[in-house]
Design a protein around this nucleic acid. Structure first.
Lengths: 218, 218
DNA sequence: TTTGAACTTGAGGGAACCCTCAATTTATTG
DNA sequence: CAATAAATTGAGGGTTCCCTCAAGTTCAAA
């Protein structure tokens, strides 16, 4: 006889889906601390059902994360596809922080470095390799300073996460961080990208400073 | 007759002092969220007594803040005393963040922009003027980029606060932010300050990049 | 020393959130 | 339509922290 002849009940599947959808929304909007009671209520289900499907908050979050991780993988892949090493590095940062800005739970998850579940840890490890590659390439041919360490990226992520949290203009902040606060000196005149405070089409400036600017396409 | 003929009881004064000292310690060490029960217990006093002296958590914190605000005033004054405008600006940042690193409650207070009490708000306003002055001077003669806005300072404070919170090397982060991530180009070769990862005498690099470096004393 | 006001105490009620489990309902299968 | 396994339910117990207040204690003035 087959291993399992009895299939999952339809209402259980429906409830599970509802819970996941609701939790994803609430986590993205308000962070990881949303009361579980509220998630259950919003999903039109009792708290007991929530616990029935997901014994812990982490289990619930672990069931939501994969989609975000896929997005992250895509961002990393895209960044690696960018020809110019510096632009690729910046594209990664922009993608990652954009994701964090759209989903507060990512923000929280990073801040409290508690990788809810092995799957997350694994996916992080997966992307770490790619990120190291991005960094190496940016150092070799993109003008990233040689003493830049992975720790600096972690600090930057933490920093930007807080800027996002306080509804700051994180793109502006990132641009500042990438280029520094100093005005152009006589020798580097004109090398600073604009900050674009209120610009609705807010993009981090990808261009390298200095005279050697060549347009790039992807 | 005099307005108040009856003096405060000695035990009340003693308890108040103990509460303030204990709360200052705990707030500095663990942030603003320390349970009030614990503060009372640590002070060797009942929770009722705490509430008797300080009806709200904010009232308690408001009674603690002045010392920190004085320190902040001193930092601002010292920064204004620095001759070189850029160095003065950096000295202010270093002082402010150093204060935040030593006292997690400052960190929290800034993060949740809830200026526990008018006194705090007033002191902030007081120092804002001086800070604007520092910024203006740094722009005029210190090479601070012209498009730097107070908002950028607020974002930086938020960012550094998170770096501190996660036990990051905030001096390193600050140096990076001040100078940017790009390696020296041909024209600016040698202008980057060292990051000093494990250096125990960790100071933010105050020197201006470029050839025009003159030592300075205070 | 007495006395009254000032002060302290800590049990306890309330709120928010967590999690469990016995009773009930519902889907599926024969 | 039973029969039964699968799911759902929500009241309730646990924890932590907040805050109050009636009863008790201590100071200091007379």
């Amino acid at each position: 006889m087959p291993a399992e002849t009895r299939s999952r009940r339809s209402d259980a599947l429906r409830n599970r889906d509802r819970l996941l959808a609701t939790a994803a929304d609430l986590f993205a909007e308000r962070g990881l601390e949303v009361p579980l009671d509220e998630i259950a209520r919003s999903a039109g289900v009792s708290i007991g059902t929530l616990y029935n499907h997901f014994p812990t908050r982490d289990a619930l979050y672990a069931a939501i994360i994969p989609a975000r991780l896929d997005a992250l993988d895509r961002i990393v892949a895209d960044a690696l596809d960018v020809e110019d090493p510096w632009e690729g590095f910046v594209a990664y940062l922009e993608g990652l922080f954009g994701l964090m800005a759209r989903d507060r739970s990512l923000n929280d998850a990073i801040a409290q470095r508690r990788p809810a579940g092995d799957e997350v840890a694994e996916a992080c490890a997966r992307s770490v390799d790619a990120v190291l590659e991005l960094i190496a390439r940016a150092k070799a041919g993109g003008g990233l300073r040689e003493d830049f360490a992975p720790m600096d990226l972690a600090m930057l992520a933490a920093a930007v996460s807080q800027v996002i949290h306080e509804s700051g203009d994180w793109r502006r902040f990132l641009t500042l961080h990438l280029t520094g606060l100093r005005a152009p000196t006589d020798t580097t005149k004109g090398s600073l990208p604009p900050l674009g405070g209120k610009d609705p089409s807010n993009r981090v400036c990808l261009r390298r400073p200095g005279p050697s600017r060549r347009p790039r396409s992807r």
